[in-house]
Design a protein around this nucleic acid. Structure first.
Lengths: 121, 121
DNA sequence: TATACTAGTATCCTCAAGTATACTATTAAC
DNA sequence: GTTAATAGTATACTTGAGGATACTAGTATA
């Protein structure tokens, strides 16, 4: 432990991280946001297909959570039949750096793990 | 949905994100890594205090997971009594951009939420 | 009228994450 | 030999995330 670093400062650095983790908690939210940033908007069905393995129940629940946090809009268009689309909000797009960081790390991590396995052979 | 964007490309962009999420899953790992990046190394007790709310059982389990993923080292020093410290590995430091992105987002998010509440008054 | 598609909801279930609390081994200091 | 500190482990429990499956409402189309 480095002595000039204080528990107080450590806690202060941790608080915003905890806030972010609260919002992104779980297996699906970041994935849904990623897909919506990629496509800008898409239907329930398209989301369900893009986020592999998610059940309609979870997708529905997670979308509601994301709406509450102002990251996603649910748009009902008055066509016939009504078409519903989910859009990333401007605010939702602010998640891009988080997703990019996760992408880069995940990409490197996969390569690192493969290297480790090769070494052990 | 933007037509020139393909489900295939979308999936490719999502895969590394999923890999990262797998490793960071849960309420505690990112927080532990954050603290260890801040302090570089610290004892079990210091970690327990820095990561507010974590129980020794969870901390112990999460540290083992992080060791398996090569992000953290458990160092036993042959002093008397033996002192044990947890260190972030060089590889573990590669999480820094992820944590910074989460920090920045969480910081902004808190301000955004406060603004929203003010608006509604 | 029957079939099919979209956008979900309803129900039941499992399991792992996380909590609460107590306890242990080792050593030091008094 | 008693108290205290560190580094955990043990046990019992709860809860919610997530999974599996089936179902519904609304509309279109053949």
């Amino acid at each position: 432990m480095i002595e000039n670093k204080t528990p107080k400062e450590c806690l202060e650095k941790l608080l915003p991280v905890r806030d972010a983790l609260d919002v992104f908690q779980g297996k699906w939210k970041i994935q849904i946001i990623s897909v919506l940033i990629y496509y800008e908007n898409c239907s329930f069905k398209q989301l369900k297909e893009a986020v592999k393995g998610i059940t309609p129940k979870m997708l529905s629940k997670e979308l509601k959570d994301l709406e509450v946090n102002l990251l996603v809009d649910r748009i009902v268009e008055n066509t016939r039949p009504v078409s519903i689309s989910y859009e990333i909000t401007e605010y939702g797009k602010s998640c891009t750096p988080v997703i990019k960081a996760l992408y880069n790390w995940g990409d490197t991590h996969r390569k690192t793990i493969i290297e480790e396995i090769e070494k052990k052979k």
